[in-house]
Nucleic acid binder design. Structure first.
Lengths: 121, 121
DNA sequence: GTAACCAGTTACCTGAAAGTAATTGGTTAC
DNA sequence: GTAACCAATTACTTTCAGGTAACTGGTTAC
């Protein structure tokens, strides 16, 4: 990446890059998507389990974001025909494939915080 | 990362993770931040150079986002006292430290697109 | 002297994201 | 039979990101 120093953002390869980064951003952006995904990396979870873990998310937002993540095939909604009916959410292989990206995001976030705080003294 | 399967999001380490990922997201989210940063990974650029490379960004948005990135010490604004006065933007070391994260973002974005398209056939 | 380039700023507007609060329909424990 | 849990949904409101368009003050080329 970033090897073609002399090519502008308008070249084909670079447009592809921008598109790819926008695709990724679209999935992880917003206030709740990453927390939900991180929550599910710790295993299958039920609606209220996710809700309680994240803490300050409303059922409306959780429902909305779970739907979006399901549509994008990041998570899977499993309905078990027990009584009472139980619903579990889990990451799909595509969802699990986000691990490395999220690790880097997290690592840079930590680095960023450290640097910003350092420079404020 | 993600090794403490039995710990909830409310544990200290996990709260730290959520915080870090939110810090990182805050810097890269929005429509223009990543394009601007990617543009500057190709070298120092002037206001209108960035604008023309990205293409569809308005001067208002570019100005706003450059300011935000400067405040967060991702980029540096250099004023050269030539005539006419020249202004150049460049990545700081902190900005350059985003490279790996952006690479992963991009890589996953490509993977995502491939998977989604594959499953639609 | 006027047209164009540079690096922006200002005011106004719109649509999407997110929050709040109440409600739903089913189940189970007491 | 009523209180509580589960998995949401609905209606309403607020907030904010982003877009549009016009303008600014300085410089330079012709």
């Amino acid at each position: 990446m970033f090897k073609d120093q002399n090519k502008s953002l308008k070249t084909g390869t670079c447009q592809l890059r921008l598109k790819a980064s926008r695709d990724a951003l679209e999935v992880i952006q917003g206030k709740w998507r990453v927390p939900i995904i991180i929550s599910l990396t710790f295993g299958k979870k039920r609606f209220n389990e996710i809700k309680n873990e994240i803490g300050d998310i409303s059922p409306k937002m959780l429902s909305q974001e779970l739907k979006m993540l399901e549509e994008n095939q990041i998570i899977q909604r499993n309905v078990y025909d027990s009584k009472p009916v139980m619903i579990e959410y889990e990451l799909t292989p595509l969802g699990r494939s986000m691990k490395k990206m999220l690790e880097e995001l997290l690592a840079w976030g930590l680095h960023f915080r450290k640097e910003i705080i350092k420079k404020q003294h």
